[in-house]
Amino acid sequence: MLQRSDISFDTDDTGRFLPWLISFMVFLAALSISGLFVLSDITQDLGSEFSNKITVQIPVSRSLKTDGLRKTETLRLLRALTGVKQADPLSTEGVQELLKPWLGDAATLEQLPIPSVINVEIDRTKNISVKTLRAVLLPKIPDVLVDDHREWLNYLANTIRSIEIIAFSIVLLVALTTVGTVIFTTRTSMGLQRETINVLHVIGAHDHYIANQFAIHAAWLGVKGGMLGIIVSIPLLFGFKFVIASLGTNLMPEISLHAAGWVSVVLIVPTIAIIAMLTAYTTVLKSLARLP
């Protein structure tokens, strides 16, 4: 124990049950908080990377020469537009690499009709949009395709936001469950320690003196359970990262938890200990208020 206690918690079975439950709660909270940070990073990365990018696709025609001319003409038109910061054609190898997650090694086959792709970076403050590009390109190259990344990015962001809300709800639920469990175990413990509490009360112990002892005990159990939960969750988080990386595909974004994420995960332990401590403290004070 952290401090000499007048109450014998060693003989109190509630102390054996609470750390296990807290460890499970901390485990869930660690996964949820990590998920929140990873998703937030993904949204931020994708947003900064693609929000000003537009892809122009020129479908293959019957002749390679025509394809070349259409690509050159498209590039010329794009570069002449105000608000287009950059317009670069993607190499055939680059396009094949993009298609690889869907087509596998077949994407490298030269017989495949792979369209020409031009990455365009625009400055949206200059009043330029997909509509402007289409208006300029379609009269000259009728079957050109212009994709705005922002459309699917918004859809993805909404999906991620929903997942974030679910993860946040799990964290909240974990906190509430911890509070409920600590209230229940504290009341049970007070029942078991009734004799000692009565003696302390009669000899003139202040309610805060008794509540402090339960609070310190609950905090200690919170730390024990929290450490166990963290010890189990950290290898699992590394495992996730390893599994995602080992898939070796561009379909999944890079999953990595940055310093703020790790700090938040580790901070779950003191947070849960403080929640347990304050809950036990107020529960004991409320119960003692019923004594004469």
Binding site: R4, D6, S8, D10, E195, N198, V199, L200, I203, G204
Partner: peptide, 20 residues
């Protein structure tokens, strides 16, 4: 008696002073 069995005789007697 209602002595706290996990505490020594010394600590039992000291309780009323410690709580103050």
């Amino acid at each position: 008696f209602r002595l706290l069995s996990h505490l020594s005789a010394f600590d039992n007697v000291a309780l009323p002073l410690r709580v103050t």
